[in-house]
C-alpha cells in the first residue's frame, strides 16, 4: 500500500533554517544540511527547502546550498523560492533536487507550469498555493481565494479553479498552504484541502497548521491529503517524526515505519 508522506519544510534565510514567521521576527534554527540529514535519518519521506527571501531580494536561489543538501541525503526533495525561469529550474534539478515548487510566479505567468512540465516532466512541477477563506462567492465559488507574495496580495482567483487549471497545465502535485491555519498549530484547514483533493487527480499536500499527530491523521483521513508538510512542531522539538509516525501507525494510517 502506498504510504502517506510526512514532509518537513525548511525555510531558509542566508543559508540558515528560520522559523516560518514570514519576513519578521525570524529565529535561527540551524544549518539546512544538518537538519536535512537529521530528518532523513529520523524517517521523513521527503523534504522541501524554500529560499524564502530570494524572490523578495530578486536574487537567484542559492544553488550551492541545493547541491550540499543533495549530496547529504538520499531521499527526494523539492526546492522553491527565487525560481523565475526554465534555466533556474534546470540548475536546481541538475544540482540534485527532484522537484520545483512554484507559487506566486505561476499566478503571474501560468505558462511556466506547462513549460516546466514539458521540459522536465509533470512529476517535477509542484504548484504551491496560499488560499484564504473569503465571503466573495461570486468571484470565488469555493469560498477560498488564492493569495500571493507571502499572503500579502489577493488575486481574486478561486482556489479550486486554480488547482484544476494548474493540473491541466501540467502540475504533478499541489501543495495547499492555508493562510488561515499557517502557524496556528490548531490543525490543517481541512475544508479547502478536501475540496482540492476531490477536484484534482494529482496528489495533494496539506500545509499549515500542524500541531500534533491527530491533525496529520485528519488531513489524511478527513481531507484526503496524500502528504502533509510540517515545520514548526518539528523544528522546535515539540514532537519528533518518530512520535508522529507511531501515532499515525497506531491510528491505522499507512506510514513508512522502517528505513
Amino acid at each position: 500500500m502506498l504510504t502517506k508522506r510526512i514532509i518537513p519544510c525548511l525555510d531558509i534565510i542566508n543559508r540558515r533554517v528560520t522559523k516560518g514567521v514570514r519576513f519578521t521576527n525570524n529565529i535561527d534554527l540551524g544549518d539546512p544540511v544538518e537538519m536535512a540529514v537529521r530528518y532523513s535519518d529520523e524517517g521523513c519521506d521527503e523534504l522541501v527547502v524554500y529560499d524564502i527571501t530570494a524572490s523578495a531580494e530578486q536574487r537567484p536561489i542559492d544553488i550551492g546550498m541545493v547541491r550540499e543538501v543533495a549530496r547529504a541525503i538520499r531521499i527526494p526533495f523539492a526546492v522553491g523560492g527565487g525560481i523565475a525561469t526554465l534555466d533556474d529550474m534546470s540548475r536546481v534539478l541538475l544540482a540534485g533536487a527532484e522537484k520545483i515548487s512554484v507559487n506566486s510566479l505561476a499566478v503571474r505567468t501560468p505558462s511556466i507550469i506547462a513549460d516546466g512540465a514539458r521540459a522536465f516532466g509533470n512529476q517535477c512541477m509542484v504548484l504551491g498555493m496560499d488560499p484564504v477563506a473569503t465571503a466573495d462567492r461570486t468571484r470565488c465559488p469555493s469560498g477560498y481565494e488564492v493569495t500571493t507574495r507571502g499572503f500579502r496580495e489577493r488575486t481574486g482567483m478561486d482556489a479550486v479553479a486554480w488547482a484544476r487549471r494548474a493540473e491541466a497545465l501540467g502540475a504533478g502535485e499541489i501543495v495547499v498552504n492555508s493562510v488561515d491555519a499557517d502557524g496556528t498549530r490548531a490543525g490543517f484547514e481541512l475544508t479547502i484541502t478536501r475540496l482540492i483533493a476531490e477536484a484534482v487527480n494529482v496528489p495533494v499536500v496539506a500545509s499549515g497548521g500542524a500541531g500534533c499527530a491527530a491533525h496529520l491523521r485528519d488531513a489524511f483521513t478527513v481531507a484526503g491529503a496524500d502528504a502533509v508538510i510540517v515545520a514548526g512542531i518539528l523544528h522546535t522539538g515539540h514532537t519528533t517524526l518518530g512520535q508522529l509516525k507511531h501515532a499515525l501507525h497506531a491510528d491505522g494510517v499507512p506510514v513508512r515505519m522502517h528505513w
Binding site: 500500500m1 502506498l2 504510504t3 502517506k4 508522506r5 519521506d45 509533470n122 512529476q123 504533478g172 502535485e173 476531490e198 487527480n201 494529482v202 496528489p203 495533494v204 484526503g224 496524500d226 502528504a227 513508512r256
Partner: peptide, 13 residues
Amino acid sequence: DRRDKVPQIGWNQ
C-alpha cells in the same frame, strides 16, 4: 477509486 492519484508518488512496498 478517485482517491488513487496518478501519478503514484511516494513510498510503497
